[in-house]
Nucleic acid binder design. Structure first.
Lengths: 220, 220
DNA sequence: TTGACATACTTTGCATGCAATGCATACCGT
DNA sequence: ACGGTATGCATTGCATGCAAAGTATGTCAA
């Protein structure tokens, strides 16, 4: 857990961003306790901004009140299932909207090409059996689709869901069965978006996330 | 804006809850500036917990950074449209899940009956041309459907979306055209849930929110 | 009359201080 | 030896203090 090179004092927002980033990177283990004093020392700021950031993480659901302060939120199997149900629907909507924008010419060709490249990059990382790179490339692709949907609120909601899952996800992408299927599913989504087929895009995205949910195995 | 009868000191969470509640009630006008000093005086606490609460409201998107502190977030027409697109999909999912639970016998009969009663209460309020009661009853019905879906994360996300819309929604339920249609649409959703027809529930809910989006007229 | 500039003030932002709370630990009694 | 209790410590939670930044206002000059 390399300590961040001391944020300059003038940045309470930065503390939250830094913490959020760490969660997104899966830097914290579920159940781990966080003390504001330790974080303050680690980030080189006083307790006040840290305290503020922790408050935000509480409403994000990324941490929960614990005996002494807060603990990194875990994800029970049932919660994980619920989260994936929501995520499947949201990503289905994102793919649908992206396809619709493509059909109406609102999507820049460069953006669509970027999706294809992102699919390739996931495949490369998965083939290389690099779990960390795989997870990162995979997230990048899904983020790109989210952006292509052109709906700020949807995008923000997706980020919340992803971060919530990221806490317990290391990389399940090493499952050979799943590794073989992932590229095909990604291609199906992007192909439908490129074709401007909203219905197909929705179905493909939904099926993909549902498959991901089945492949999901929590960390602990 | 009746000032809250001084929260007992021992409650920073309560400050956030109180503010969140005010937003949900539409107590603040879009663009209105909030100063932490004024809020602190109003709530009878110091600036620190207020500051923390405002930070959370920032991540909620309910307030935005402004010249002097923060201002109540407004909703541009394009943002409103995006929000309703997301909301339509989320409520469609909620109705679908509720219907599925009903089909599997996981939904208590009392809960389904409560939905019918909620529909009636909305109709009564709308017929009485009581905008405030109408909005409240309407929200109660949608909340009940959200709860019936049995998915915490979906429910929480819906609350975020509702609160974000509530800021600018007074009550568009006075539109006679809309008033005539709303009960019918509500009934269609609840009927489908009762029948355990997930697909019909989804379609009905989606259509209902899309209609609500068309009827939506912001405050300013 | 209007525009620009300087000044003062309001307000935020962070750090620290102080009190309260809850847990761990060690000690004592049985 | 075991259980209960008391004490001390780690840590939170809120209030206040101090410095910085940006804004509004008033004044002066053109």
């Amino acid at each position: 857990m390399a300590s961040t090179p001391d944020l300059q004092p003038g940045s309470a927002q930065a503390v939250y961003a830094a913490l959020r980033r760490r969660f997104s990177d899966g830097a914290y283990a579920p159940g781990q306790r966080l003390t504001e004093m330790a974080l303050a020392a680690d980030l080189g700021v006083s307790r006040t901004p840290v305290r503020e950031a922790i408050g935000r993480l509480l409403t994000d659901g990324l941490v929960v009140p614990a005996a002494r302060g807060v603990a990194v939120a875990a994800l029970s199997p049932i919660e994980a299932e619920h989260l994936f149900v929501l995520r499947a629907d949201l990503e289905a909507l994102a793919a649908e909207l992206a396809a619709r924008r493509q059909a109406q010419g609102h999507l820049a060709p460069a953006e669509v090409d970027a999706l294809d490249r992102a699919v390739d990059e996931v495949e490369v990382a998965v083939r290389a059996h690099d779990p960390r790179a795989s997870a990162q490339a995979n997230l990048a692709l899904h983020r790109a689709i989210g952006a292509a949907a052109g709906n700020t609120f949807l995008e923000e909601t997706l980020h919340r869901v992803w971060d919530r899952i990221a806490v317990t996800t290391v990389a399940n992408l090493d499952d050979p069965h799943w590794a073989g299927a992932i590229t095909e599913q990604h291609q199906a989504i992007v192909r439908a978006i490129r074709a401007g087929d909203a219905e197909a895009a929705r179905r493909a995205a939904k099926a993909h996330i549902e498959a991901a949910g089945r492949a999901y195995k929590p960390l602990t």
